[in-house]
Design a protein around this nucleic acid. Sequence first.
DNA 1: CCGGATGTTCACCT
DNA 2: GAGGTGAACATCCG
Length: 259
Amino acid sequence: MPELLEVETYRRAAAATVGRTVAAVHAPDGWFAKRGATPEMLAAELTGARITAARRIGKLLVLDTDGPRVGLRFGMTGRIVVDGSAPIEALIYSSNGDDPGWDRFGLQFDGGGALVVRDPRRLGGVELDPDESRLGPDAAAVTVDQLREGLASSAAPLKARLLDQSRLAGLGNLLADESLWRAGLSPLRPAGALDPGELAGLHAAIGAALAVLGRRGGSHTGDLQPVRVRGGHCPRDGAELRRDQVGGRTTYWCPRHQV
DNA sequence: CCGGATGTTCACCT
DNA sequence: GAGGTGAACATCCG
């Protein structure tokens, strides 16, 4: 998925539907409806609703309506298609992502146009009135104090905490590795043990990673991305990168400058 | 053919 | 309670 940067792109695309009224709901996949929602409920509650806003918290896209809120998640391969065109043409893991058979959820609007979630692997989902309180502060707007709170008093590895969406919302595997690489911090450091300087450096590195990768076009455009292979070398100092499982995810990091 | 991959949730361990 | 692990979802790629 789409990490924060991609979902922000989706949000901007979805903003084109603000003000429109839902004429019909396409929900062919019961599995895609999460947290108690069913295709029947989605159709009943959203038909006739008017979209009033498109917001993003971390990787969650929220459509506000004059009825229930709609929460959209995109898993690793989900994309959004608004009025027939997708804002991101090719995701790494779905070169052929344009099969309409992969449309898992859609809203058709009065007067034409539609918003569709197309997700080959079905790792995403749609829910009504998502519990937004389960998400921590958005990584694109987090303050140093909020970051400190999110990492405080934990012996868990730093990277595992950065990926915990209830502590900090929006970073995925690639952005977490890129941010730690830029900050010069080991992903294995105990999360609660950063000194004030390291914390400030991490905060700045997350901001820089989001700014730079956002400008380049997404989470997969990091400096670390080309060397995320076995035997890859650090673009900064040439050391051979380590490949570990941290927080359940494959992690590439430089044992020389990430300490 | 097999292993992994921008993610989340849950059951089951320690 | 806190963390960790593995499974599940389904497709593509090396």
